[in-house]
Amino acid sequence: MTWLSMSSALIAKPLVIKQRFETENFKTFNNQVIKQVAVGWESYGTLNANKDNVILITHYFSANSHAAGKYSDDDPTSGYWDALIGPNLAIDTNKYFVISVDSLANLGAYNEHVITTGPASINPDTGKPYGLSFPVVTIRDFVNIQKLVLESLGIKKLHAVIGPSMGSMQAIDWATTYPKWVPRMISIIGSAHSDAWTTALIEQWTIPIKLDPNWNNGHYYDSTPPTEGLIAALMFITQDALTPEFINDIGSSSAVNHQPLEAKPMTSILHSHRIVQWLRTTATARAKTFDANHLLYLARASQLFVAGHNSNLDTALSGIEARTLFIPSANDLLLMPYLSENVHLSLKEQGKSSQLDTLTGNLGHLNGITKITEKAEKIKNFIEQE
Rank of each mutant, 00 (worst) to 15 (best):
R286N: 10
R274H: 09
V39C: 03
L333K: 15
S252A: 15
Q170P: 02
A301W: 02
M336N: 07
R184Q: 14
E151D: 05
N31C: 05
R184S: 08
G351R: 05
L261Y: 12
L201F: 07
N248T: 10
V16Y: 02
V101E: 05
I379P: 02
E151T: 11
K210I: 03
N25V: 03
I172R: 01
I186F: 03
L345I: 11
S7P: 10
L298G: 05
E374S: 11
N312R: 07
V101K: 03
P208L: 01
L335D: 05
A376K: 02
D291I: 01
T206V: 13
S268Q: 03
I85N: 00
R20T: 15
T77N: 14
F26M: 02
M169T: 06
G308C: 06
L153F: 15
A233T: 10
Y297W: 08
D125N: 14
Q277C: 12
L363W: 06
S272Q: 12
G79W: 06
G229T: 04
S62D: 11
H159D: 10
T360R: 11
L89I: 15
W81C: 04
G118E: 01
T28Q: 00
L242P: 05
I155S: 05
Q239L: 04
V54I: 05
P260E: 08
G79P: 07
W278I: 05
Y96F: 11
T176F: 01
R184G: 03
T284G: 11
V54A: 01
S62P: 09
I186L: 08
F326N: 11
T227R: 11
I383D: 03
P119G: 09
A301P: 02
I207F: 06
T2G: 05
S302F: 11
L201D: 01
Q170N: 03
V98L: 04
K180E: 15
A232E: 14
W278C: 04
N111S: 14
T176H: 00
N217G: 09
S268A: 06
N50E: 14
K378H: 14
I188R: 00
L242V: 13
W3F: 09
V101L: 09
I369M: 15
A316H: 02
I275K: 04
Q259D: 10
G45E: 03
G218P: 13
Y80G: 06
